[in-house]
Design a protein around this nucleic acid. Structure first.
Length: 575
RNA sequence: GCGCCCGUAGCUCAGCCCGGAUAGAGCGUUUGCCUGCGGAGCAAAAGGCCGGCAGUUCAAAUCUGCCCGGGCGCGCCA
């Protein structure tokens, strides 16, 4: 059994999961001390060891960890970086149980070559951690509200909503993995114009069903689905509602439709594996008088003024292009006002960080909402808004045209029914969310190498298959106690390094709110494993080698499984 | 006009925050690999003035400025 002093000195298991990060910090301390000892201290840009940046060289010949520290010192000290690097390398105290040696390369790189035992130790830590590998507590339990999808309750969810659902859910999963306490919320616009238009469409459809000659107004929703809802309403409540006075009549029709449509949306999301903690009603918000409270809060801080009969928010004081109207001349509020109240409410509920996923049509609202948060005294980074760009549906090279106005669009249900939820979610997560995405239905359905989802899932399946085969052949099951010394091939060390970086990758993806980093990582890892598998046999007559390789296989399976889980994509044992 | 985003291989995109050693994938193309753990896989090849010009730097796809090309936003709409 090899030992890794630096790591094992720390009892906390969390340190094991972040062994690379802690190793980097420890080595930075040692480098820092060496710099001081050599008298180079004045050349340091940063007074702290944390200022020393590490990178992972792509070429194994350059070691496992590398730093350009000497270049920075060279500049300040007006000396050659190579000389400086050599002096540092000569005096730096390295822990030989972890670091094999330090080399100076190129114009002045300091390359650290780690002891082989260090990398093997990672395999053991992964097997010990299992599902916890990649989980950390840097979020400190902080409550985060992730608001996403929030489509109008006026029709079925469509393809772009499926993208937002995949991204929002993956972000919530990522945050949870690094120790935040995420809460998934869906904002229901069951008030205002959208609601009125839906209610109007309902009334028209009801009357048409009853044989009245009643044209559909321009602003209403012509989609056929409203007919179904109208029919259901008539079946259940008869037609006396239609005789009721206008406000009540519309209200009842509209609420019925919203309820039905929300149920569809919820079912579609659940079939997709996305569950919300809360469906937040705008109607309820307005009913409580929260918009008025928001006005008072802004007024008290001196950010409001009246002009031309309207109430304005001085958002330009916080970097917006122009001031914004909160209450129109006719006494109605703009959409912006309840939205401010909604965000106030989120913070009042104890969420310290708010994440909003908005459609590209709300792009122009980012500045004013950030302005409102600041005007209300919240820190600028308390609200992070992500724009989820549009999806172009393709069938091969042909684009599928969609138009909500004519009711011609592909729903989320149809998409999931055609390609399956794993493929849909994974593909939506292969790009940054603010970049438009071409979604090729043929590709997503292909059970072949064209399809990145299957590529990764197949790696998982293959890993499981090897472990099954080993069990059948009565080889011992992999355990953290296995002797890992036979793992010496470059492919094996490369695989282990990749596995070792996973916890840091998760932290980075969570902090940046970029789940697409995980799909890229998964593809890399799967490719490495497939290559290794094709070149080398796992199960052989050499029992010691077989045991070590099975441990590596088990570790790969853990990481691929954990990562797929963070994306909300299944990790099948057989396909 | 102002603001934001994007220009990286034939196509679709990572990498850019925080500058470093030969710029990465997938698809497509070409050529190989199944009498042993799942070929939904692997290996190899071809394919790039990282939109352009300048600047900062020992070092620029990465930072800065300007230009060109594409998208979006700039309502008392939501």
């Amino acid at each position: 059994m090899e030992r890794c002093l630096i790591v094992e000195d720390r009892r906390d298991t969390l340190h094991h999961r972040l062994m690379i990060a802690f190793l980097k910090a420890d080595l930075a301390d040692l480098l820092f001390a060496a710099v001081k000892k050599a008298g180079f201290h004045s050349g340091l840009a940063s007074e702290a060891p944390a200022g020393i940046a590490w990178e992972y060289p792509v070429d194994p010949a350059f070691g496992d960890l590398s730093t350009t520290l000497a270049f920075g010192l060279a500049k300040a000290l007006r000396r050659k970086p190579r000389e400086i690097a050599e002096q540092i390398a000569a005096i730096v105290e390295i822990p030989h149980d972890v670091v094999d040696r330090v080399e100076v390369a190129g114009a002045g790189y300091l390359n650290f070559i780690l002891a082989k035992g260090f990398w093997r130790g990672v395999v053991r830590q992964i097997l010990l951690a299992g599902p916890a590998w990649g989980k950390t507590d840097i979020g400190n339990g902080q409550k985060v509200l992730v608001e996403f999808v929030s489509a109008n309750p006026t029709g079925p969810l469509v393809v772009v909503n499926a993208r937002a659902a995949a991204v929002g859910d993956a972000i919530a999963r990522l945050l949870e993995a690094v120790g935040f306490s995420p809460y998934r919320e869906y904002y229901v616009n069951d008030a205002g114009n959208q609601f009125r238009n839906l209610a109007l469409a309902m009334e028209v459809r009801c009357r048409q069903l009853l044989g009245e000659d009643c044209p559909m107004p321009e602003e209403a929703y012509p989609g056929d689905y409203v007919i179904d809802v109208a029919r259901e309403f008539l079946e259940r409540h008869g037609q006396e509602t239609l005789a009721a006075p206008e406000p009540e009549r519309r209200d009842r029709l509209g609420r019925f439709a919203v309820e039905r449509i929300l149920a569809w949306q919820q079912a579609a999301l659940e079939a997709y594996g996305v569950t919300f903690d809360n469906w937040f009603s705008e109607r309820a918000l307005r009913g409580r008088g929260d918009p008025e409270l928001a006005i008072e809060a802004l007024r008290a801080r001196g950010h409001l003024y009246e002009r031309e009969g309207a109430l304005w928010f001085r958002s330009t004081a916080f970097g917006d292009d122009k001031d914004r109207v909160l209450v129109k001349g006719d006494g109605e509020s703009t959409y912006f006002l309840p939205d401010i109240a909604y965000h106030q409410d989120k913070l009042a509920r104890g969420f310290e960080l708010l994440i909003d996923l908005w459609g590209p049509d709300h792009h122009g609202y980012v500045a004013r909402m950030q302005a409102a948060m600041q005007a209300l005294g919240h820190p600028p980074d308390a609200l992070r808004i992500l724009i989820v760009q549009l999806v172009r549906l393709m069938r091969g090279n042909e684009q599928i045209r969609m138009s909500k106005r004519t009711g011609q669009f592909v729903t989320m249900d149809e998409l999931v029914a055609e390609v399956g939820r794993d493929a849909a979610r994974f593909i939506f997560l292969t790009r940054r969310c603010d970049s438009p995405l071409d979604f090729d239905l043929e590709m997503a359905k292909a059970a072949s190498d064209e399809n990145p989802v299957y590529y990764v899932q197949y790696a998982h399946t293959r890993l499981c298959s090897v472990l099954r085969e080993a069990a059948k052949a009565d080889v011992a099951t992999p355990s953290p106690e296995d002797n890992l010394e036979p793992l010496n091939l470059p492919e094996e060390v490369g695989l282990i390094k990749q596995l070792a970086l996973y916890p840091e990758l998760v932290i980075g993806a969570a902090q940046a709110l970029e789940p697409h980093r995980l799909t890229a990582y998964l593809h890399d890892l799967a490719a490495r494993f497939h290559g290794y598998y094709n070149r080398h046999r796992i199960i052989s007559t050499d029992t010691s080698l077989t045991g070590a390789r099975l441990a590596l296989v088990a570790a790969c399976r853990v990481v691929i499984g954990n990562a797929l889980n963070l994306l909300g994509v299944s990790a099948p044992e057989r396909m």
